[in-house]
Design a protein around this nucleic acid. Structure first.
Lengths: 196, 196
DNA sequence: CTCTGGCTATAACGACCGTCATAGTCTAGC
DNA sequence: GCTAGACTATGACGGTCGTTATAGCCAGAG
């Protein structure tokens, strides 16, 4: 994965590793001990770098993934919404295939963990922000290419939701066929949206 | 939830309760002890009814949910694909809203849990079958209403994936707005698919 | 050299996990 | 009444969990 510019290398290794493990097993099934071991860091270091514990680590992992995807999205959307969609799809396809259908999206994994009663954990709030960010990038690009505002927002939400769902379908079926089918339909939808 | 016709009432209560808990917290974050307590059944009973342990219980919970949704889908699809989509969306909206954004789809929750190396746990296989079943019902209905076969399959996959993803988005944002946006686009897509 | 502060090593805390074993209770059929 | 078999009650097993505490290392500043 791409390297950010701030923070101790060891600290960032932990965050990136946490994102990877959460994308495979989900948040509550991933222990801090395993995250530390996966990043070849001592357990004590995780509580040194992330004094608020697991929640803080999960929050940073979500934001890390969010920014990583947003960066790719921003770059490819310069060539238009269709190119952005292709990049978005290729990115997730790469993760699913490279891990032999073992990994998916850590943001989705965090989003579907039940929060404690009447409380919103920071990691869940971060997941919501990341989804908003991705939708915003797509919607802006659609509008810039002639789509009406509400149409753009609807299509952007559909793209993010559909891709997230499709990744899950691919993992269950151990096949990339769902990704192919979703890609074809979303591609056509974008064409129809910006042409009208 | 609807009642099936087979099995001890107590056994079914455990399965239905397990499905509910998995849809909130995910599989690995849900303990057998909690499932038993939630169904007001003794812990020993779970191992009496489900001698293969947690995996078997999870598998049955996935199939139970799959059949419950499929039943609703079959019934409403009799009035056409658009009606089926409306029912599918309303069903998930009900779950999300009734639980104050705490529950989602147990099938998705099971689908994104990492399987052990080179092995496919029965619960994951069941999730794949359930997704196939839902897609099949939708695709059949689309074809019956004039859609070409490949188009029908693509749209059916998109619907299932998009709705699953949208439910996750709603949970993260604690809002049903994503469901509204997705609904509008999918509705239009069905209209365009069966008209052409 | 000493000293400071970032980082690590190690052990422990109570709590919960999946699973199993055993003994007990209850009901249906004879 | 009695016995068989379905179900329950209880407790234990080794293991892992999140988190904290404490002591140690080791670079760089003075």
């Amino acid at each position: 994965m791409a390297k950010s510019s701030s923070g101790t290398p060891s600290r960032e290794r932990i965050v990136a590793g946490a994102a990877d493990m959460i994308s495979r097993r989900g948040l509550s099934a991933t222990s801090i001990r395993e995250m530390a071991k996966h990043a070849k860091a001592p357990l004590g270091s995780t509580y040194h770098y992330f004094p608020e514990g697991k929640q803080q680590l999960a929050t940073e992992a979500v934001r890390y993934t969010g920014e990583w995807v947003a960066r790719s999205l921003r770059k490819e959307l310069a060539a238009g919404p269709a190119a952005g969609l292709r990049a978005f799809l290729a990115l997730w396809r790469g993760i699913v295939v490279d891990t032999d259908f073992h990994a998916g999206c850590p943001v989705l994994a965090v989003a579907i963990e039940e929060p404690p009663a009447d409380e919103v954990p920071p990691a869940l709030a971060a997941a919501a922000e990341v989804f908003d960010q991705w939708e915003g990038l797509l919607a802006d690009s659609l509008r810039e290419h002639g789509a009406e505002a509400e149409q753009a927002a609807q299509v952007a939400t559909l793209i993010v939701a559909a891709v997230e769902g499709t990744v899950a379908l691919c993992r269950a079926k151990r096949s990339t066929d769902p990704l192919d089918r979703t890609a074809a339909q979303l591609q056509a939808l974008i064409d129809a949206t910006i042409k009208h």
